[in-house]
Design a protein around this nucleic acid. Structure first.
Length: 206
DNA sequence: AAAACGGGGGC
DNA sequence: GCCCCAGTTTT
């Protein structure tokens, strides 16, 4: 299958770039942690509110956990995340001179950071060629027939084989936007889909 | 492999 | 009231 065709057709529909207004790796790391299992409108507001008060690892460590909790009260798992933000900040100070490491192995050592979050940081903060596989990317890659996988990590590996490197950084945002608006988890809107002719599941519908 | 963490929004 | 959401960690 011609995978470039997929991205060339989706790109004009979703020109907006995620995290377009923020480049600070620490902000991207923390806001990505906050985004886990939480809608992005909520995440956006909470991240900005948090960083208006504390914007560096040192400030996070110096802050009262209760204060951080109250600032991010509306995101999911906010107590757990508040604790992890302090843990992460302390590790960055102790191990990385208060900088966010630009390397998968080091990122994965941080509490609350899995492959999806680590790949988002590598891609959005450091512009590395990384594919961040969340539930949307996983679902859509399988629906299209791009991959045939069970776990997100398998999807990441298979996508790396199927997708030209120059598109790796775009896969996450394009598939997430596409997944939220058209290729939804249940009842995808195939009648308005611009890549239906490329989809392995189109015949199964109806 | 499945459960647990969890508040907010949509229907 | 019930279901889902830009996942990760623990059992």
């Amino acid at each position: 299958m011609d995978t470039e065709e997929i991205f060339d057709r989706l790109k004009p529909l979703y020109p907006h770039e995620y995290f377009s207004t923020e480049r600070d790796p620490f902000y991207i790391l923390i806001s990505t942690v906050l985004s886990q299992r939480t809608r992005d409108e909520v995440t956006e507001v909470a991240s900005r509110r948090l960083f208006e008060h504390y914007s560096t690892p040192v400030q996070m460590v110096g802050a009262d956990v209760k204060s951080i909790e109250s600032l991010i009260r509306d995101v999911g798992f906010y107590r757990v995340k508040a604790g992890r933000i302090k843990e992460i900040s302390q590790i960055l100070i102790d191990e990385y001179y208060s900088q966010v490491p630009a390397c998968m192995d080091e990122l994965l050592k941080l509490p609350g950071v899995g492959r999806k979050t680590a790949n988002c940081v590598l891609s959005y903060a450091f512009l590395e060629k990384a594919i961040a596989v969340d539930t949307h990317v996983h679902r859509i890659s399988n629906r299209l027939g791009l991959v045939d996988t069970v776990t997100p990590e398998q999807t990441e590996i298979e996508l790396q084989k199927q997708v030209p490197v120059s598109y790796w950084r775009e896969v996450n945002e394009l598939f997430v936007q596409f997944g939220k608006t058209v290729c939804k988890p249940l009842s995808p809107d195939c009648e308005v889909c611009v890549i239906e002719d490329l989809c392995a599941k189109k015949e199964k519908k109806k």
